[in-house]
Structures are given as structure tokens and as C-alpha cells.
């Protein structure tokens, strides 16, 4: 029925935690399940007003990155998984960031329920960990060793084969 489209929104405004506003078209916003849910709810209420969605956990520099990702993926929405060009783009996209940014981006993808981005981040992080030693991983990710020496020895001893 045509009536359902009478209240459809074409754009939403997203507000970052540091109070910057981003105008996002609906197709791009729908890459995030969180934003899509907000849009769907508003459409159900039949509003024609532009809605404002505040994201209290995402800073504007990270939100810019998430939206860049969503924009690219909205263009490929129909064959998301099998497109080589898109995969290449994904890889180049993540390669640019330092680990602190990657951390915030992962949290943002989780918070905004952008599953493909979250998957991508987790895979990228896992790939960076592969074949590294414990010391190297702690150094790269700047993680403090919070085990006592005895605890660490016990844990390693449990799977001594992996540390020879």
C-alpha cells in the first residue's frame, strides 16, 4: 500500500557524544541496526519530522569513520559479502588506523549494532594477534600484565606446549 510510504523518512540527524550533528540518509543509516530501529519506530508513529538520534557513546571522529563505512556498504547493499572490491576497500579502510582508534571503532560498531563492521574489526584484531608472542601482543595493544608471576606461570604451564 502506498500509505506506508507517506510517512517514510529520507534523512536522519545523528548527534555524537561531543555534540556534533551529522545528517545521514536513510539507506546509509540503515547499515546500523541501532539507527534503523530508531527510524522504523518513528515511521511507525507516522512522523514526517526529521529525527535526531543522540549517540552518547560515540565521539565525532569515530562516528565519521563508522558513517564512512556505512556509506560505502550502503552502495553495495545487495551483494555485500561477495564483492571483491568491497573486501579490498574494507581491508584498506581498517589498515589506516592505530590500535587506539581501532578499539574505539570496535566499541562503536558494537554499540551501533553494525554487525559487518564489528565482524571486520574483530577479524582484523585477531589477524594482528596471530603468530605473536605474549610480550609482543601486550606491547602492541598496550595491555598491562595484571597477573602475578605465579598466576602467569600456572596459566602457561597448563598449556606448556604452546610456549616452547
Amino acid at each position: 500500500m502506498a500509505s506506508s510510504s507517506s510517512s517514510s523518512l529520507s534523512r536522519v540527524v545523528v548527534k555524537s557524544s561531543d555534540n556534533n550533528l551529522f545528517v545521514v540518509n536513510k539507506k546509509v543509516a540503515s547499515q546500523s541496526q541501532l539507527l534503523k530501529q530508531c527510524i522504523d519506530n518513528m515511521e511507525e508513529k507516522g512522523t514526517n519530522d526529521v529525527i535526531l538520534i543522540p549517540l552518547s557513546n560515540v565521539t565525532s571522529n569515530i562516528l565519521t569513520l563508522v558513517l564512512e563505512y556505512c556509506e560505502k556498504h550502503a552502495d553495495f547493499a545487495d551483494d555485500d559479502n561477495n564483492n571483491q572490491e568491497l573486501k579490498q576497500w574494507d581491508h584498506e579502510f581498517l589498515k589506516k588506523f592505530d590500535y587506539a582508534t581501532l578499539n574505539s571503532l570496535t566499541m562503536a560498531a558494537d554499540y551501533m549494532v553494525t554487525k559487518s563492521l564489528l565482524n571486520l574489526c574483530c577479524q582484523f584484531i585477531a589477524d594482528s594477534i596471530k603468530d605473536l608472542t605474549v610480550q609482543q601482543i601486550r606491547q602492541i595493544f598496550d595491555i598491562k600484565n595484571d597477573f602475578t608471576p605465579q598466576e602467569e606461570a600456572d596459566i602457561k604451564n597448563e598449556n606448556a606446549w604452546a610456549f616452547r
Binding site: C122, I125, K130, D131, T133, I137, D146, E152, F163
Partner: peptide
């Protein structure tokens, strides 16, 4: 869960609590 070897999986557990 995105690691692909048991050794990396075990090493992962010794990074921090």
C-alpha cells in the same frame, strides 16, 4: 573466536585477566 590456531587461542588467554 576469529583466531585460527589453537596456539594463538592459548596465547590469547595469557595476555591479561
Amino acid at each position: 573466536l576469529k583466531l585460527d590456531t589453537l596456539e594463538d587461542f592459548v596465547v590469547f588467554a595469557t595476555i591479561c585477566r
